[in-house]
Amino acid sequence: MKVFYFTATGNSLDVAKRFGGEIYSIPNVLKGDQFHFEDEKIGLIFPCYGFAAPKIVREFIEKITLKSPYIFVIMTYGNKLAGGVNWFVRYAEENDIHVQYADGLLMIDNFLPFFNIEKQKMKKKYTEENLSRLLNDVNQKKRYIRNGSFTDSMLTKAIQYFYKRNPNFNTDKDFSVGNDCNQCGTCVKVCPRNNIKLDEHKPAYGGNCEFCLACINLCPQKAIRLKKESNPNARYLNENVTLKEIITANN
């Protein structure tokens, strides 16, 4: 089994490790020269962004060739999936990737503009119970696609239309770097886009931002901040994943 994942703060990597098999980082695959993969079972695990898939996952789907009788998708999310799962299954089909199983897994939401990490940690999300179900389903090669309501589908379409019409919404222009930055370079190492460089004083962003917020959540000094966020002191790294693993995954 081969499992492909994209992660910023560890949730999707944590899930990918639970499934086992050969684990591939999507950013690293895109930086390589091998784009055709075959196996008896292939998995795709990534977070929900804007009730759809992150841009880097879409680029992966457009570029990759996957050959397998059983392809499964797990979309991690922290609040609401809307029509994200169905949207992605259709998107994959358009790129000749045929999904047999697709579902979501509710986890801690690390989207700092909207959610307070500390409050998220206190919510009961039944992640372990639901993950056990997903593992069992895939182990038995169950065929299932999570269906959203008509309202969910329209919500996903509306959000995606908004992003398309507003390309400067949620970009690295929304970040600021404080004087407490000690130029450790962690932000450079965790960025899946290679979008950050260290200048003489602090990180400099290049405008090719995934808005995954890895640089903000994983900064040891909490020196990188959003202009608007619910709790500037709250940051998140999945407890089952190390910073070193995130660096290996994204750079």
Rank of each mutant, 00 (worst) to 15 (best):
I216P: 02
N217T: 06
W87I: 07
E200L: 14
L218C: 03
G83Y: 08
N166T: 09
F111N: 05
Q100D: 09
F175D: 00
M107V: 12
D109S: 08
M154A: 14
K197H: 14
K173M: 13
P113W: 13
F37A: 12
A53E: 13
H36D: 09
D137M: 02
V29P: 06
T186N: 11
D137A: 12
G206K: 15
Q100V: 08
A158C: 14
I145V: 14
K124G: 05
A8P: 04
G20P: 03
T171S: 10
F51G: 01
G207A: 04
A16M: 01
F19T: 06
E22Y: 07
G207S: 08
G20M: 03
Y144V: 15
E59S: 14
I64M: 03
K123N: 13
N130T: 00
K63D: 02
H36I: 11
F60I: 05
F169P: 01
E94T: 07
L131G: 01
S149F: 13
P232H: 12
E94F: 07
H98S: 13
P167D: 07
N95M: 11
G206D: 14
A223P: 03
Y163Q: 06
A82P: 00
Y70D: 13
E62K: 15
N179E: 14
Q160C: 13
F114R: 11
S12W: 02
Y77T: 04
I97M: 12
Y70P: 09
A102G: 10
K189W: 01
T151C: 01
N195D: 04
G104W: 01
I74K: 02
V190L: 04
H98K: 14
N136M: 04
R143Q: 15
T186C: 08
K222P: 03
M75H: 04
T76E: 00
F115S: 10
G32V: 09
L106S: 04
A158I: 02
T151P: 00
L81A: 07
K63I: 04
L218S: 01
E22C: 01
K55S: 09
Q140F: 07
F175G: 01
D103L: 00
D96E: 15
I71G: 12
R58G: 06
C184H: 05
Q183R: 15
E245A: 11
G83R: 10
N79E: 10
R146M: 15
N95R: 15
F60V: 07
